[in-house]
Design a protein around this nucleic acid. Structure first.
Lengths: 230, 230
DNA sequence: TAGTTCCGAAACTCGCCAGAACCGGATAGA
DNA sequence: TCTATCCGGTTCTGGCGAGTTTCGGAACTA
């Protein structure tokens, strides 16, 4: 039972563009309703708690009481913000989407360097948590298009996009052939990691990821581990 | 909570064909309990129904009433055979394991030929059903070692074993290098298929599998689609 | 201080489901 | 035919969890 409440500590609340047409202007707090300025300040804690419980218990194992208790909030507070359990989960998943600035991506000059640069303890832990959450809701993906979309937007697409960029750069600089199947190659790492975590229950550590790059991905594009640039 | 420690001593029929009213158990050393010869004849129907419901509803969505109703059996009949829902599910998963005779494997002389020969409508549908079942229980895999073992033994290992054999043959005949990462290569196809089905919700059809072989697996071992043997 | 708005906690309703108990009927051996 | 065992279906209980309501209190405002 790892608590590991690595709370963002009331960090900046994520983008609020989920489902509510509510306030078109995210920047303006809209002070119209005088009398109170505080508004939904507990949302980040509740969403974070929901993600934690989701990762540990799965969707069906998660109860609203667990979420409220972990967020030190009342169940009524949760229901004031979200009308149902599924709404809460969908928004919690949506706000797992870390903004990936394109300029933040590594650019070492070689495909291998770029791929290895992505393997950091932080990203490993981050991916591991996403996988645990995903494990808890895969059975819902088949039934709920909203869940499917939320998962794809928050977990699958960001990672795939990064890989696509790296492969495209390698093509542009002539390091690998232009007729590589970028789409399939971009999915090797995420899918193998997911399989290893969810099905095999083996750790996705740095060693595994490096060997994946060197013995599968690079050979598949005609490169070798020891020869970064041809 | 799920005891699942000991079988009720009367239900020792782990493997069946599971789809149709079964044949009277070829290798049954059971003394058959004098007084009645009929014994547990409804097991295959119930197990098959359990698999169907599991694939459609997931573990938590599946109820014992659904299973009993689909098998046209009473709920009491189900509980006479299996002490709990988890026991039923574990045995149902276990009996999904199709016996894979090693001599049944294709042997076309080339790795590409062997891999493509495995892509048949029957195997595609079979794998699709296994994936649907797997989707329904992944969240349990993290919590129940028994589930994890059952899934691995019935769905993961058989497929991985086939691929390992094919790659090892290719190594033995000198078609591909001996220092290939057979373990990782054998998992590409299952993991990509699982990812595509469970997360992306795209069909795992023949076209996808062929392109996977030609643009990922074969390039990764230094072969080309058009040049089966170098 | 009085008024307003939100909050946490807890009690409550309602429905679902696992599992057990029960019943009448069918079958087979004695 | 009698009896034992299985079967199918039905019913009951107990617990659990989603969602609602209530209430006292905290925080801010005028």
């Amino acid at each position: 039972m790892p608590a590991t409440t690595d709370m963002p500590a009331t960090s900046a609340s994520p983008e609020r563009s989920s489902t509510e047409p509510g306030s078109p202007e995210p920047g303006s707090p809209e002070p119209a309703k005088l009398g109170r300025k505080r508004d939904h300040t507990r949302d980040p804690e509740i969403l974070s708690a929901a993600i934690d419980v989701l990762a540990e218990e799965g969707y069906d194992g998660m109860t609203m009481e667990m979420v409220a208790a972990r967020a030190k909030a009342g169940k009524a507070t949760v229901y004031r913000r979200w009308g149902s359990k599924s709404e809460l989960v969908i928004e919690a998943i949506a706000c797992m989407k870390r903004g990936v600035a394109p300029e933040t991506l590594p650019d070492t000059g070689t495909l291998r360097g770029d791929l290895l640069a992505l393997i950091r303890p932080h990203s490993i832990d981050d991916a591991d948590k996403k996988l645990k959450v995903m494990a808890g809701i895969v059975s819902l993906i088949a039934r709920s298009p909203e869940m499917s979309d939320a998962v794809n937007a928050a977990m699958v697409e960001p990672r795939a996009k990064i890989n696509r960029v790296l492969f495209q750069r390698a093509i542009d600089r002539g390091e690998i052939s232009a007729d590589c199947d970028v789409e399939a190659l971009s999915l090797i790492s995420p899918s193998m990691a997911a399989y290893r975590t969810l099905v095999q229950r083996k750790p996705v550590d740095r060693e595994f990821l490096v060997s994946l790059v060197d013995s599968v991905i690079l050979p598949a594009v005609g490169l070798r581990a020891g020869a970064p640039a041809s």
